[in-house]
Amino acid sequence: MTKMEDLASPCNPTWCAGCGNFGIWGAFKAAAVQQGWDNLNSVLVAGIGCHGHMINFVRLTSFEGLHGRPIPVATGIKLANNKLNVFVFTGDGDCLGEGGNHFIHACRRNHDLTILLHNNALYSLTTGQASPETPHGTKTKSTPLGNPDEPFSPLALAIASGATFVARGFSGDMAKLTELIIKANEHKGLSVIDILQPCTTFNKDYTYGFFRENTYQLPQDYDPGNKVKAFEKSLEWTEKQIPLGILYQAEKPSYESQITQIKEKPLIENLVTKRDIQDLFKKYS
């Protein structure tokens, strides 16, 4: 059993007051307590960005890697020890800019990972440049004349690439986000949650008020099994029409479930021993 105090690290969060990361941090910890995620069963991997500091504030085993690269690190961890819950914390710049290729291929392979995509539509740790999620026309430090690039929907990309659990949450609704994180982890296969997150310092458009005003929960009768409908939903981004909840979910074998070498037990549970290679010599004689 995990208690909230077990998750407390001696480091205090360094995020700005009101940062959306507080909500994601709180929701993740609440999920960890509910599900009993601890140092026996879970590992966290983070990239670089404001989100990446999270590993200092949760007392769970973690790896903070390079900008854009948490997904391949997490993939290696999962393949070496498929018993672990592997959570990837990544930002919109980290996951969709620098690490876009890894995101596409992780979705395609349906690795059993849970990706929490902290999406504040900006590069904030470097003090506010445009990210792949910054709306067209927005003025930022890197787009002083207005952003000429169009943002894209990470959820549409995830669905198109083959992810089997595709959801959107809002850092301002911790209760719902907690629920989503738990469901994402329970799902066998690649789960991604696009988490809308205000940046109170640099993003004056995507405020708590904006998200409260413009998002809605997908209705009870919404069928996340319908891929075409899900794709449609993933492209929805207009006034009062930003859907939250599980957009798409499909049952498909995860990558790890197809690897016979790790069917019985994780790789790392085999003691490293010197192997006999006499059989290999035969082929070369």
Partner: peptide
């Protein structure tokens, strides 16, 4: 009984290998 994984690029290759090593492999 080891795992070979074909990565999407060399960046993924080294990061996967680092992840697996961190996990003990």
């Amino acid at each position: 009984r080891y795992v070979y994984k074909q990565p999407e690029d060399e960046i993924a290759a080294i990061n996967m290998a680092i992840g697996a090593s961190f996990a003990g492999a």
